[in-house]
Design a protein around this nucleic acid. Structure first.
Lengths: 145, 145
DNA sequence: TCAATTCCGAGTAGTTTCCTAGGAATTGAA
DNA sequence: TTCAATTCCTAGGAAACTACTCGGAATTGA
C-alpha cells in the first residue's frame, strides 16, 4: 500500500515546477538539487511525465522543464497515474471486464465492492488535490512561520 | 498502490471463516480449496494472523482455524495491517517522529499533509468495514439473485 | 496406531525498485 | 564556430520483494 519513490519524487518535482511556473524552463539539475533526488533517476521520471504531456521540455543551453498547464489544472492523481500506473488497490478493478479467476461468484463481488470503495476514496483525495492547492498550502505555511 | 496477494488472500480467507463462524475449527485445506489459494502459502498467512491474535487454531485431527472474535469485531484494516504492514502511502507517516531527510522544510510538510489525507481516507474505508459488513453484503447479494 | 491436521524453517524463480553509466543530440551564447 | 549546458536515450545491475514450493516435526481425535 505504498507509493514508491517514483510517485513521491515525481510529485515533489512537479510541485517544485509549480513554484517556478511562468518563469521559463527550469533545468532538471536544479530541481534535483533542491529536492535532493538523483539526477539521472529524476530524468527518467521527467521523460515519462513529458511523454504523458504533463510537462514540456526545452533542450540545449538554458533549457529545462516546465509545466504544460497551469498548476490548478494538474491533479496529483494525474502525476501518480503516469509514474505508478492506475490508482487501484486490486488489479481486477482495472481491466473494465470482471475477468478475474473468481469473478461472478457473489463472494467475489463483495470483495470487489470493498476494493472499489477503497479505490474511490484514494482517487477522491488524489484528484481533488492540484499542484495549485499544494502551492497555496505552502504559502499559508510560510505565512504562519 | 496495490494490495498484494497476502492482503487479498488474507481478507478472503478471513471472510470465509466469518461465513463459518461458530461452527468450530475449519481446516485450512477447505479454505484453500474454496478460495483457490495455495495451501502452503495460505498457511503462512494464517500463521501471521494467529500470532496477531485474529484467529485461533486447533491442531490435530478435526483441527483448523476459527476467528478469535465475532465478525463484527474484526475490521478489514486489522487484517491488512497484519499481512501488509501499516496502512500508509508513505513511510514518513509511520514512524511518529518526522525524521525523514527533508522534514522540517515547509515544502515537506505540504507533502506530508497530502499523504496524510490519503492515508486517512484509506484507513477510513478499511477500518469502517468489518467481516460482518462483508457478510451482510454477501447475504444481500444472494437475496437479490 | 494412524490419518488429519497445524506448525516451522528453508529455498527459489521471477519481478520490481531504485538507481548508475555512458554517450548522442540540441541549443544559446561568447 | 566553438563550447558548455542541457535534454534525450538505452542499457545494466544490485537489492529487495513477491508468491510461492518443499520437507518434515509435532499434535490430536478416532
Amino acid at each position: 500500500m505504498r507509493i514508491s519513490t517514483r510517485g513521491e519524487y515525481g510529485v515533489r518535482a512537479m510541485f517544485d515546477l509549480s513554484l517556478h511556473y511562468g518563469k521559463g524552463p527550469i533545468p532538471l539539475k536544479s530541481i534535483a538539487e533542491r529536492q535532493v533526488i538523483s539526477e539521472h533517476y529524476l530524468e527518467q521520471l521527467m521523460a515519462a511525465l513529458r511523454k504523458a504531456g504533463l510537462v514540456v521540455s526545452k533542450r540545449g543551453a538554458h533549457g529545462g522543464y516546465e509545466l504544460a498547464y497551469a498548476p490548478a489544472e494538474i491533479r496529483i492523481g494525474d502525476i501518480i497515474r503516469v509514474l505508478e500506473g492506475p490508482i487501484t488497490p486490486m488489479e481486477c478493478l482495472d481491466n473494465g471486464d470482471g475477468d478475474g479467476p473468481y469473478c461472478g461468484h457473489s463472494e467475489q463481488c463483495v470483495m470487489r465492492n470493498l476494493w472499489k470503495r477503497l479505490q474511490d476514496s484514494m482517487e477522491e483525495v488524489l484528484d481533488n488535490t492540484t499542484l495549485e492547492s499544494l502551492r497555496q498550502d505552502a504559502l499559508r505555511l510560510k505565512g504562519d512561520e
